[in-house]
Design a protein around this nucleic acid. Structure first.
Length: 179
DNA sequence: CTATAGATAATCT
DNA sequence: GATTATCTATAGG
């Protein structure tokens, strides 16, 4: 169903820039275009899957197209899209989105912060889209989540990942280039 | 604008 | 007991 996800996390992270990610809230969609994403694989010391399967990371080892949500720093939720073939232990962290639908809902959930700060970080994306741990293991395009193809082309830049202390040299963070 | 401290709990050693 | 794929408020330039 999602060819773009099945080649592997690095390829998927690069190609996912520009895809639209939404959660469905009643009759409205909440979300927008993915503009920042990072790849994590089992061979990567910064990845939750590095030490093998655990209860938390089990979802990363399943088939592509499922959502993996984890709890971070005792406060925040962050969401990934599982990639690669079944058993590989890969995912792409959704780090930022450019809102285009459901902005009023996001403002409310983000406590009326400026529009520029609604979804410019992985935990902010989850708060704005209403994603928590109960959504971990849910399949895309099967109810709550919608992943739709890009509506325009994006220039993508690869950089070092953010907020990690191991394997920082990998250029596995992909961002939509500003102009 | 940049820099930094503090919050706070699951997860793993 | 240490670490953590973060965010926010606050202080300073």
């Amino acid at each position: 169903m999602f060819d773009v996800l099945e080649e592997g996390a690095v390829s998927a992270a690069r190609q996912l820039i520009g895809w639209h990610l939404y959660t469905v809230d009643g009759s409205s969609r909440v979300g927008g275009a993915i503009i920042e994403a990072e790849a994590y694989t089992q061979e990567d010391a910064a990845s939750h899957s590095y030490r093998g399967r655990t209860p938390r990371t089990e979802i990363m080892f399943g088939p592509a197209g499922y959502v993996y949500v984890y709890f971070s720093y005792g406060m925040h939720w962050c969401m990934n899209i599982v990639t690669g073939q079944n058993g590989r232990g890969e995912a792409v962290l959704i780090r930022a989105i450019e809102p285009d639908e459901g902005i009023e809902i996001m403002r409310k959930r983000r406590n009326n912060r400026p529009d520029s700060e609604l979804t410019d970080g992985p935990a902010k994306v989850c708060q704005a889209l209403g994603v928590t741990g109960v959504d971990s293991g849910v399949r895309l395009n099967d109810g709550k989540f919608l992943l739709l193809p890009p509506r325009s082309t994006y220039e993508v830049k690869a950089t070092e990942r953010i907020g990690i202390s191991k394997d920082t040299h990998r250029l596995w963070r992909f961002v939509a280039k500003r102009h």
